[in-house]
Design a binder for these strands. Structure first.
Lengths: 214, 214
DNA sequence: GTGGACATTGACTGACCAGTCAATCTATCT
DNA sequence: AGATAGATTGACTGGTCAGTCAATGTCCAC
């Protein structure tokens, strides 16, 4: 019974903590956080029940970890975009792209973050309201700058604008998550443009005069 | 002092079913659907535990009832608005007004509907995805008509436009619910205008010669 | 003033599951 | 080999609650 698995263990062996987190994403996405048992996570990860509690203090902490890992990457992205001297449309597009790409790269993870944390602001969101607010504020700053440049209307408060932008994206992901909107590479790419065009340019045909049916 | 109480049961004093529903709204809003116990609802309503199960088959059914009661009123409102020959902006404003007024009239109920059903599409939303989709589609029709009239851009799909509109409103309510946005009569009124202006007119100052699709 | 239908009561049960813990395994160092 | 520390195991415990049900109350019809 030779098993070569013990040699490399320390170096490369699967980091069980990571294995548990990845398994949790799949289980949360499939069954929902509340509906799944910790034993489901352990089974999915192929480890013993107790090991989950060796690495995490509670079931909640597993979800917290998943959310924060990803959300912080997004906050950093937004900060970086904000700091660069680009036109608003490009900044918005960079943010929308990041989020849409995150979804297309790992739908399960984004589903968990959106459904179980972001959109569940009563339970977990409450805990992470600070993180969520941070995103709003960073986007708000981008808007403020655009207003100062005269590119964005001054009569729509930056906070509100940020909300509309973020709300549109969240609704878009929600539509994908629940099968209300078509998915696939082209749809993802088009969605990025649609978000920016809708929020920046509005739904109306840009007629200077009035609305006249030609 | 006419004996109003004994003639017909239906007329008499508080209909316990209603009392339970109203109590449930307060309890769900305060503690959240998952975190509260059925006994909390009974206590809040001032009735025995078992009575809840006399009127409702399950805890879920209580929430379902609350959601459907209100959501159907909204669907009807949208249908009526849609059927009238008004400019899109006025249609959108009527819908936004209805929802904002619903919130200002009974924040607890709207909180429950948004947080526990609409935004919790994994658990309950799944059940009510049809109702939610219906709202999308009705709004989508309004957009389609506006496109046919040439008032709305044709290159933004009606479905997507409906999503952006609804998403912005939902995000707005969510902001109020979690204290991220200021409330009060003036804010509510202004919000109605902001939603319509943002979605229809966009965030940009109207510049001619942006993206031109020939 | 009796019977029956429905309203109301609340103690109880059965299932479920997060989190604990003592035992066991594995790797590494001396 | 023996010692130490961390990783891993899974049976078990304690508490929670949704839902049941048999008993009791109330009202109306006749």
């Amino acid at each position: 019974m030779s098993s070569g698995r013990s040699i490399v263990r320390a170096k490369t062996g699967p980091d069980k903590r990571r294995v548990i987190l990845d398994a949790a994403v799949r289980v949360f996405a499939r069954q929902g956080f509340h509906a799944c048992r910790v034993s489901d996570i352990a089974d999915e990860a192929g480890v013993a029940y107790g090991l989950v509690y060796h690495y995490f203090a509670s079931k909640d902490e597993v979800l917290d970890t998943l959310f924060l890992e990803r959300w912080n990457v997004m906050l950093e992205l937004i900060r970086e975009v904000d700091s660069q001297p680009l036109p608003v449309r490009q900044k918005f597009e960079a943010i929308a792209s990041f989020i849409v790409d995150s979804y297309s790269h790992d739908p399960d993870l984004m589903k968990v973050i959106i459904v179980e944390v972001t959109r569940a602001a009563n339970s977990f969101g409450q805990t992470h309201l600070g993180q969520i607010r941070e995103a709003y504020e960073l986007i708000g700053e981008i808007v403020t700058k655009a207003q100062e440049e005269g590119v964005f209307k001054a009569e729509i408060e930056a906070r509100f604008a940020a909300m509309a932008f973020y709300g549109t994206i969240e609704q878009l992901l929600t539509g994908w998550i629940f099968g209300l909107r078509p998915q696939g590479k082209e749809h993802f790419e088009r969605a990025k443009w649609l978000v920016v065009e809708t929020v920046c340019g509005g739904l109306e045909t840009s007629v200077v005069g009035e609305t006249s049916v030609s």
